[in-house]
């Protein structure tokens, strides 16, 4: 099977610092890949190269078999790569449909398109449908997002990505700052996205969460990918060893060579 996303020998430097050092990574359709590592391991930099925030100096990125080079996040999103950031990027003063449709509002046209008003009913119905498909229920969709819990907001961000036919989702610490029950609900959502065939890269510090939903785990340490394991064939002790630099597959290969 062809990988949906393929990163080849990517290098990103900030001045003298090599933030991402010749990293390669494949993600296949319907797969959830965990990207873990200590702070400053290069996880966020790597995904920002994929999502068009940064431009890598060396290496290639292939998406759906085609070589891509996104100049801006909006280009990555147009190609179908949706990134859900830690801070969610929702407008807290707007309600759920307004956020799901932000920047892509549905309009009713009058006088041959001369006057265009927001089609609130349509946006509300569509929001309801996409939230139902994720089995998310809110008491009311027409309250400002600020009034919702962290987990509910995360659900809105995920629903937005799904509604706009994201082909590939990157999640940056989606369970951070959430209560236990909410964390479980978000993990549930990730599983449901996977059932719908959407591949996901999950960046997280919380190893139990990573083990709960991923198929594969990629560990980064100081800018390099130090290992890649099937989730079923490893355990958190081993992953922690890689995260702190005690184990390193690339070093072993180097020594063998």
């Amino acid at each position: 099977m062809e990988p949906m996303l393929s990163v080849r020998n990517l290098v990103k430097r900030f001045g003298g610092l090599v933030a991402v050092n010749r990293v390669s990574l494949d993600v296949y359709p319907g797969e959830v890949v965990g990207l873990v590592g200590d702070n400053a391991a290069g996880k966020s930099t790597l995904i920002k190269c994929v999502s068009g925030v940064y431009h890598a100096e060396e290496g290639e990125i292939y998406f759906e078999g085609r070589r891509v080079s996104f100049a801006a996040p909006i280009e990555a999103r147009r190609a179908g790569i949706e990134t859900i950031y830690q801070d969610l990027a929702l407008a807290g003063n707007l309600d759920v449909p307004a956020n799901i449709f932000l920047g892509r509002e549905v309009k009713k046209r009058y006088l041959g398109g001369l006057i265009r008003t927001l089609d609130e009913d349509h946006m509300l119905r569509e929001s309801q449908t996409v939230l139902n498909s994720l089995e998310i229920r809110f008491p009311s969709l027409t309250v400002p997002i600020d009034k919702l819990s962290g987990g509910q907001r995360q659900a809105v961000a995920i629903a937005r990505a799904l509604y706009w036919k994201a082909k590939f989702i990157i999640m940056d610490e989606p369970t951070n700052n959430l209560g236990v029950v909410e964390q479980r609900k978000v993990l549930e959502l990730i599983r449901r996205l996977r059932e719908q065939g959407v591949p996901i890269i999950l960046i997280s510090h919380t190893l139990p969460d990573v083990f709960a939903v991923t198929d594969r785990i990629v560990v980064m340490h100081r800018g390099r990918k130090v290992t890649e394991k099937r989730t079923a064939e490893t355990n958190s002790q081993e992953i922690v060893q890689y995260m702190v630099g005690a184990l390193d597959d690339t070093r072993a290969q180097l020594q063998e060579a």
Partner: peptide, 10 residues
């Protein structure tokens, strides 16, 4: 409400 969110939403 959130300029950054608006920007990222296009």
């Amino acid at each position: 409400g959130n300029r950054e969110a608006a920007l990222r939403a296009g």
